[in-house]
């Protein structure tokens, strides 16, 4: 058991036989997903468009309820004790889920209060998140005036503000330049060193090779492979890089 302040027993995330079918849909979006993520890991979650990555992240982060299966975070049942689990997790969504007309500081203050932070703790948390993402000098500017890269960084800041035990990142670097991506990569590696466990989805294979110690590839809602990144590459010597391996495992046909 753990709370927001205490230690989180390993594994941080345990997913058992997780299935999800949307109302009215003929097929499952996820089928029998099993996953275990240890403390301090950055776990890569890869798959083509429509494979079920965002659905999996949504269910694991308690946004959606599963049709079947079990999700445990820091040993706590995510759907029996949802409020407790939500204090332990952070989510960096694919959308820039921020209020454009509020300043960076106002956005973070608001989200911080929803995590139960107040007073000096809230001020410290906001300052820390802005420092980590390199936005301290723009804290009084409206988010709507930010560049794409800065918006991605403030999106990350909103997810890590309360120093979660487990951070879900859904394509956090989509649509930004190499410099901003590099900055975010550095931020994530630093957060890993701080003990934050991460579930990371992306279409950029070089990011996975740089960040992720383990990965799972999902297709049609089913995990195709789950392995340590380096070991997986050794198992497929015919593939020069992770990109080739990904295409080998999921096929070359278009998905959308």
């Amino acid at each position: 058991m753990a709370d927001g302040e205490g230690q989180c027993p390993s594994p941080v995330l345990r997913v058992l036989a997780l299935s999800k079918r949307y109302r009215g849909a003929p097929l499952n979006a996820l089928t029998d997903l099993d996953l275990t993520v240890a403390a301090g890991e950055i776990f890569g979650f890869l798959g083509p468009n429509g494979a079920g990555k965002t659905t999996a992240i949504s269910v694991m982060s308690t946004l959606l309820r599963p049709t079947a299966g079990h999700v445990e975070i820091c040993g706590i049942d995510a759907f029996r004790h949802t409020a407790r689990v939500r204090r332990l997790i952070g989510v960096v969504p694919q959308d820039l889920a921020l209020f454009d007309t509020l300043t960076a500081e106002e956005n973070l203050n608001y989200f911080g209060r929803l995590y139960g932070l107040k007073g000096a703790r809230l001020e410290d948390a906001v300052r820390w998140a802005l420092d980590v993402t390199g936005l301290a000098d723009r804290r009084r500017d409206a988010v709507g005036t930010f560049s794409g890269g800065m918006k991605r960084r403030i999106n990350l800041a909103a997810g890590i503000l309360h120093r979660p035990k487990l951070l879900f990142l859904d394509e956090p670097t989509v649509g930004i330049d190499a410099q901003s991506r590099n900055k975010i990569m550095e931020n994530l590696l630093w957060l890993k060193d701080q003990g934050i466990t991460m579930i990371y989805t992306t279409h950029y294979m070089e990011e996975v090779q740089r960040l992720c110690t383990r990965l799972a590839i999902i297709d049609h809602g089913v995990i195709v492979v789950q392995e340590q990144t380096a070991r997986l590459m050794r198992q497929h010597p015919d593939c020069r890089d992770l990109g080739e391996l990904f295409l080998k495992l999921t096929g070359r046909q278009l998905r959308d």
Binding site: S58, S61, T62, L63, A83, R84, R86, R87, I89, V91, P93, Q94, D95, L96, A97, L98, F99, F111, L114, Y115, G116, A158
Partner: peptide, 13 residues
């Protein structure tokens, strides 16, 4: 539409 509601829904509120 901008995903803010989804973000709020995974917060302890």
């Amino acid at each position: 539409r901008e995903g803010i509601w989804a973000r709020l829904m995974v917060m302890p509120v």
